[in-house]
Every structure is written in C-alpha cells, then in structure tokens.
Design a protein around this nucleic acid. Structure first.
Length: 486
RNA sequence: GGGCCAUUAGCUCAGCUGGUAGAGCACCUGACUUUUAAUCAGGGUGUCGUUGGUUCGAGUCCAACAUGGCUCACCA
C-alpha cells in the first residue's frame, strides 16, 4: 500500500531481523495440529489436562511480568494461551514478550482452567509460523471503514468474526442448493463464460478479445441459451451455479459479477418449477437456518409453505386498484397508468405499461414470499406463450422482501415463434436499446432440431444469501466486491 | 450518471464562530507469575484525501478533482 514504511512496521521489521539473528525462522513451514480452538472450548470436559497442538494468529496479549496471556485465533474461534517463564525458560519467555499482535504461531501445551474460569492452554513450547509486519486494526472496534473492509477483506475477516460467519453460511447455502438438486436427479454442468453472442437476458455485456482467434467475445450475461441447447441434446435435468457478468451500475443490490443458479427440467412447465422452487428454497432455509422464520433487518419473513401465487394482473388489481384485463388497447392502458400518477412513455406497449405499473405500485407491497405469474409476452422473449391468452407467458417471478429472487418460465420451444421474438428484440436494438437480445442463429438451429417442453428457473444466489444472512448490501455477501482500482 | 454525506496517527474517533494537531486502542521503555477491553508510570508516532483559491494566518471557509457510503435512475 504505502511506500513509506511507518514506524510501527519499522519496529516489526527490526524484530524480524532479531529473530533471524537468533537463528529463528519467522516464516515456518508445516505444523501438525491435533485440534482446533473451538474443540478445546466445546469439549473441555474431555480436553482438560490433555496435551494439544494448535496454531493460529495472536489477537491479544496481557503480560504480567514473568507470566502472560495471549488469545490465539484460528478459523474455529479463539482460545487463551498462558505463558510462564518457569515453563519456558528466560529465553523463550523473552521471545513470547517480543511477539506482536497478528503473528501466527504454533503452540504445544496443556489444557486447563484458570482461576477466573477461562479455558486456556498452558504453553510448553511455541514456534513462529508467520511474522506479521502490519499492525492489526483496533481490538475493540475492529475495522469499520467500509472501503477498507472491502478492499482488504483479509483484514476484515481477521478482526470482524461475524463477517466470516456470513461467508460460511453462504457456502452452506450453495452446498445445500447443490445437494437438493443432485438429490432430485439434476446434473450440474458448466457452459461457456465467454460467448460469441451474449444471450439469455436483457443486459449490457462486457466485451473481451481473443487474440489467436482475432475475435471479440462477451462475458456471459446468462447461461440460459447454452443450458437449453443441452435439453436439445438430451440432458433432461441440468443446472449450473456460476458467475454472470453485466456491464451495469453498481449498487447495494448489484455487483457486475454475480452468482446465478439456473435449472432446466424437460417435460415440465412453470407450475412444476414453482413447486420445485418452493421446495428448493424451503429445504435450504430449513437445512441452513433450521427455522422457517427469518429476520431480515426489521422484518420477519416466514418461509413456511405454501407461498401465495397470484397473477401479475391480479396483483395490480389488488394493490393498484386497476383491472387491466378489461383494458385491451394500448392507449387505454397508457391512460390508466398515467391516472395512477406514473410517467409513461407514449410508445409503451400494453405489456410494458402493465410491467411499469407492477414495478412501481405492486413490488413495494411484496414482502413475504409470493409467486407472481403471467408476465406480458414482450418482456419475456424466451418464454412460452400462455395457450389461452397469448399476450402473456407462462412465467413467474418469486418476490421476497420487495426483491425478485427467482425468475422462471415454461421455455419457448417453438423455433418459429422464437425467431419472431428475436426479430422483435433486434428491432428494439436497432432503435437504440443496448440491452435487447441479439439474434442467435445457432440457438434457433438447436430449437429446430426439437427441444422438449421444459421449465426453467433462475435464482440470484447473492440476493438469496443476503436474505438468509440479514445482509443489507450485496457487498456484504461477496468476498471481494467490485471496486474502482486505486 | 444525478443528489446528499464522508475522508484527521496503523485502527476507532474528537477538533466550536479560521490562530499553527488531540484522545482511546495499538506501538516503545519500565514494574507486575491466573489476566481477559489486565493494571500502573513515562513516551505522540501526522503530506488533516489531492490541487488550487480567499485570508496576516486554513484541519476549519470556497472551488475542482479523487475514493467511498447512502439514495435516485438502470438492471438480477
């Protein structure tokens, strides 16, 4: 970071040289541990009086003349160490006294209980595993500066234990998602992150360049079109959990790279996927949190199934008081929306108006888990039309805490309809919509071979993790969120 | 991208209407053999985000820029 070596680091560099002068290697190698700090604390009844070998970072130190204490932190937690000159000899004891907060050491000693009732390890020998040259943040307040916490997550993780808990839980959530899908007979696959045509979502892509091929490639905005090619190929249940990249704004709910789960099930439709989604999330919540009620900020979310299912038009009728099913023409729809106080583009189609009304007037009401179904067709260029009402699609979005957590539909497998939808998107792109879909001839070619009817699902993993870890910002659930380089 | 706010020691933060830089933790020196935010005595370690401007004088007022946060817009 800074090229100026401050005095605190200077002191530590001097200590480092001193260690080497004494023939002590400050950066040790393999250290065989036989337990971890949490095990000593949780299993004290059996551990008392036993000899243990543990390793970790020195987080606090209290020296009392010829004896002293230190807190040793490993991934599992902390345990107190007790150093005595009588046990260690003058020379080793001096070495203990010259230790810095942040140093990583390996320790051999005996588990005991202090007079004050603190589970501790009486150190018989210790070894340097890594000398720390940078001082740790303040022991009481930790690292508060948000920018530093994200830029130097390694420091954040050292001094702010709850942060580590969030990422442990994130890992558990992803593991349980995989376990659920594996148990349901889904096959995990990997499809290209670098795509010649970015498809599967409405978003701006990142562009990169392949030198040997001499072509531009796009970081994927979604895996959807590749996963559906696999349905054509005969895989009937596939999923992928991986990164998507969208070249758009950064906010508390958006990171340019984020993790997406997509699931496809042949011979199913969006109703089957709704059931699957409910079971998936309930299973994950149950297995990870052990409770169907989850507190998010000031709200208690109840995941107990079944979740409400409501069409988009019903939701609008309920929360905005307008029944768009009776408003057939575009101008009438625009007038209704303007009467509700919305600013509507004169060129907006009926479906776009309905979507606008939904987003502005309905989403703020959707707190508890609810499936909203039947979206206008022009907003869903990859979804199958509803048989009875072809202006709408067999699609749903899951809303929790006003946020879209999942998006799913019956997949459009009619190659002629799909071609028309692409053509409409290409026309939008020609009118300047940088987020409209590209024509993808190879995808159409795949559909022309015949794709079984299928239901597909996308879940934003980061947002799910936010909900289940009570994290208000997406940056709190991404280890290294995107920041402007310094 | 717009609006608002923040930026002072390694960290957490004070610093009033402009007068030449402070505290706690950490660190250094000494005392202390069961403490735990250990305690006691002593020591301040700084390009006040950057660059300009106003002024006799700027951490403080003004402007621009940088980085970040919140928020709006866009999206998932």
């Amino acid at each position: 970071m800074s090229d100026e070596v401050n005095e605190l680091k200077q002191v530590r560099l001097h200590k480092l040289a001193e260690l080497r002068a004494q023939g002590i290697e400050p950066y040790g190698g393999r250290f065989e541990r036989d337990t971890v700090t949490a095990h000593i604390r949780n299993g004290f009844a059996e551990m008392e009086g036993k000899k243990v070998r543990i390793a970790g970072r020195v987080m606090a130190r209290r020296i009392h003349g010829k004896a002293g204490f230190a807190n040793l932190q490993d991934q599992s937690g902390q345990v107190q160490l007790y150093f005595r000159a009588d046990d260690l000899g003058e020379q080793r004891y001096e070495l203990f006294k010259s230790m810095d907060l942040g140093d990583i050491i390996g320790v051999e000693g005996t588990v005991f209980l202090t007079r004050r009732g603190e589970i501790s390890v009486q150190v018989e020998d210790f070894t340097y595993l890594a000398k720390s040259l940078n001082p740790l943040p303040e022991k009481w307040h930790g690292l508060r500066d948000v920018e530093l916490r994200y830029r130097q997550r390694y420091v954040d993780l050292i001094v702010n234990p709850p942060v580590r808990e969030v990422f442990v839980r994130r890992s558990q959530i992803v593991r349980e998602v995989r376990r659920f899908l594996d148990e349901e007979g889904f096959l995990e696959v990997e499809t290209p992150m670098m795509q010649p045509i970015p498809g599967g979502a409405t978003a701006r892509p990142f562009v990169t360049h392949h030198n040997a091929l001499g072509v531009d490639l796009f970081l994927r905005i979604a895996p959807e079109l590749y996963l559906k090619r696999l349905l054509v190929g005969g895989f009937e249940r596939v999923y992928e959990v991986n990164r998507n990249f969208r070249n758009e704004g950064i906010s508390t709910r958006h990171n340019p790279e984020f993790t997406m789960l997509e699931v496809y099930q042949a011979y199913a439709d969006f109703n089957d996927i709704m059931d699957l989604t409910e079971r998936l999330i309930c299973t994950v919540v149950e297995r990870v949190l052990g409770n169907m009620k989850v507190r998010f900020q000031d709200t208690e979310l109840d995941f107990t199934p079944p979740w409400e299912r409501i069409t988009m038009l019903e939701a609008i009728a309920r929360y905005a008081g307008v029944d768009f099913s009776t408003v057939r023409d575009e101008e009438g729809a625009r007038q209704e929306a303007r009467a509700l106080g919305l600013d509507i583009d004169p060129a907006a189609s009926r479906g776009e108006v309905i979507n606008e009304v939904f987003e502005e007037l309905v989403e703020p009401h959707l707190v508890q888990p609810v499936f909203v179904t039947s979206h206008p067709v022009e907003l869903s260029p990859l979804a199958k039309r509803n048989r009875d009402n072809p202006e709408f699609t067999d699609r749903f979005e899951l809303f929790i805490m006003n946020r879209e957590i999942a998006n799913a539909f019956s997949e459009l497998n009619d190659p002629l309809d799909q071609r028309q939808r692409f053509e409409q998107q290409v026309a939008k792109r020609a009118r300047g919509d940088a987020e409209a879909h590209f024509m993808d001839e190879d995808y159409l070619n795949a559909l022309e071979y015949g794709m079984p009817p299928a239901g597909g699902l996308g879940i934003g993993i980061d947002r799910l993790v936010m909900l289940l870890t009570d994290s208000p910002s997406i940056r709190d659930v991404i280890l290294f969120p995107t920041l402007r380089p310094l």
